[in-house]
């Protein structure tokens, strides 16, 4: 068991080092940071919402958008670079199981997403804190009654953790697709479609709630609405950051349990498929 963990750690470490050296990672993290910072310039477009809410939404949008691109493209790239360059031949000829190899890829990619999300979260927290200080100062100058913090820094970190979990699910899905796919492009396109379908999955669940005569239709909806996770359920950033008290007590444990379940299920499926793949 210890040896297995050691081998998985070694693969994930090299996967992480390979990924963070890529220009693609640097490009996306700069793009994400630029989006978070630019929220200050675009805050006048808040459509009547609070400034901090606009900044938070802008930042969360950047984290989700670029995080998803990174999760799909980078994971497929890390997998196919091993296959196409035949480094997988060297590695899998060693006493390394295919499951260990796949888990190493997963944890390496997930660690990259951790760096990405927590860097942007820290930046977003700093931007919101700076803006909050300005707003509080302005309120004091106008003689308005003092208020405590306008946003929750802990809420941003909780949100970042939930996004990290969401990206873990995305990476597991992309690894499953990659273990079937023959080309990088196929894995990226199907992976991106799976993320979009996961974002829209709540629609299927919504339809499922409506009464229907046909049991077959209901069974189809039930199955299709559970094959992919509901990625929309991770979007509780606004509430966590601006109104933490409004988040139901069981919301976060439920989202975490669901995320962990789908992540584990897709990894088991990926390992099962990859075991039969000819290298």
């Amino acid at each position: 068991m210890k040896a297995s963990l050691q081998r998985t750690y070694l693969i994930s470490r090299v996967t992480f080092l390979e990924a963070v050296r890529q220009r693609f990672f640097a490009f996306l993290i700069v793009l994400g940071a630029a989006m978070v910072l630019s929220s200050l310039s675009f805050r006048f477009l808040d459509f009547g919402h609070g400034e901090l809410k606009f900044i938070a939404d802008f930042g969360f949008g950047g984290m989700f958008l670029f995080g998803s691109v990174l999760g799909v493209v980078m994971t497929a790239q890390l997998f196919f670079s091993e296959m196409d360059n035949r480094t997988a031949l060297t590695l899998l000829a060693k006493p390394l199981s295919r499951t260990e190899f796949l888990l190493g890829k997963f944890f390496g990619a997930w660690a990259v997403l951790a760096v990405f999300l927590f860097t942007l979260s820290l930046l977003l927290g700093s931007v919101m804190w700076a803006r909050e200080q300005t707003l509080l100062m302005q309120a004091e100058q106008r003689g308005l009654p003092p208020v405590n913090g306008l946003f929750s820094g802990g809420g941003i970190m909780t949100y970042a953790l939930l996004q990290w979990l969401r990206m873990g699910v995305v990476i597991a899905i992309v690894l499953t697709i990659s273990s079937i796919a023959r080309t990088f492009l196929f894995a990226v396109i199907v992976g991106a479609l799976a993320v979009v379908a996961g974002q829209l999955q709540w629609i299927a669940q919504d339809v499922l709630l409506k009464p229907t005569e046909s049991l077959t239709y209901k069974a189809f909806l039930w199955t299709s609405s559970r094959l992919l996770p509901n990625l929309q359920q991770f979007n509780i950033g606004d509430a966590l950051v601006l109104e933490p008290a409004s988040v139901p007590a069981d919301a976060i444990p439920w989202v975490v349990a669901s995320g962990v379940f789908y992540m584990a299920a897709y990894l088991v499926l990926a390992a099962f498929i990859f075991r039969r793949r000819e290298i």
Binding site: L17, R86, A93
Partner: peptide, 14 residues
């Protein structure tokens, strides 16, 4: 595999 070493054709490493 523990007792085997392998050098693939045209090896590529990180």
């Amino acid at each position: 595999r523990e007792r085997t070493g392998f050098l693939p054709e045209a090896p590529y490493f990180h």
